[in-house]
Simulated scan of single mutants.
Amino acid sequence: MPAIRRHLTDLQDQGLVEARTERPSGRGRPQHVYALTERGEGAFPKTYSGLCVDVLRQVAALFGEDAVTQVLAARTAEQAQTLGAELPESLPLHLRAEVLARHLSEQGYDAVVDRVVEDGQETLYLVERNCPHLAVARQFPGLCAAELTLYEELLGTAVTRETRISCGQGCCRYRLG
């Protein structure tokens, strides 16, 4: 028992588990109940992308590739509706791009906006240095196409993808405007 307590204390010190004391419903002493923290939960492998790929593969097998496209389009429309309020057309493009990059970073894309000036002409780029959906994007390129559509809609300008992580490049780079 002491070894178990010592191990649980070590896990608590690392922020992997948290303890609380609960009274039993009947008689008896209060008991210590341990649960994983968010950090502890993150230490376990997640196979969400595998599940997503499997589901999309089944949708395609049962209903055809057009059904997958429709599912991705519906997801894009929902995202556009949710984010649209945060990106009003009254904001200049570079500010809308910054808000979008912040939102994407919160979702794991590690996105930034690069401003490049050549010959006195400024060009904006949205750069995603990580793809949180890489396994899905490699098997279903429609996901990347749907994101491109979303960015055009949210930013209200033409968006051209120049590089793509799912094709083996180091980042997804979009030229805005």
Rank of each mutant, 00 (worst) to 15 (best):
M1P: 07
P2K: 00
A3I: 00
A3F: 00
R6L: 09
L8H: 04
Q12G: 04
Q12S: 05
Q14K: 06
V17M: 01
V17A: 03
R20K: 11
T21D: 11
T21H: 00
E22D: 05
R23F: 01
S25F: 02
S25T: 08
R27C: 01
H32C: 07
H32V: 11
Y34K: 01
Y34L: 00
A35V: 11
G40M: 11
E41H: 09
E41M: 07
Y48E: 06
Y48C: 00
L51H: 10
C52W: 12
D54S: 08
D54H: 11
D54W: 14
V59W: 15
A61M: 10
G64N: 09
T69Y: 05
T69K: 09
Q70A: 09
V71H: 06
E78T: 12
T82F: 14
A85V: 15
E86I: 09
L87M: 14
P88C: 14
P88F: 15
A97R: 11
A97F: 03
E98A: 13
H103T: 03
H103D: 07
H103K: 04
E106W: 02
Q107I: 02
Q107R: 10
G108Q: 05
G108V: 04
D110Q: 12
V112L: 08
V112T: 13
D114K: 09
V117D: 14
G120S: 07
G120M: 14
G120I: 12
Q121A: 04
Q121P: 02
E122Y: 03
E122M: 12
T123W: 01
L124G: 03
Y125T: 05
N130C: 03
C131N: 13
P132D: 12
A135I: 03
A135H: 09
V136A: 05
R138Y: 08
R138F: 04
G142H: 11
L143E: 15
L143C: 06
L143R: 13
E152G: 06
E153N: 04
L155M: 01
L155C: 03
L155T: 08
G156L: 04
T157M: 02
A158P: 10
V159D: 06
V159N: 09
R161C: 03
R161H: 03
R161I: 05
S166E: 08
C167D: 14
Q169Y: 08
G170H: 11
C172Y: 07
Y174K: 00
G177L: 02
G177V: 01
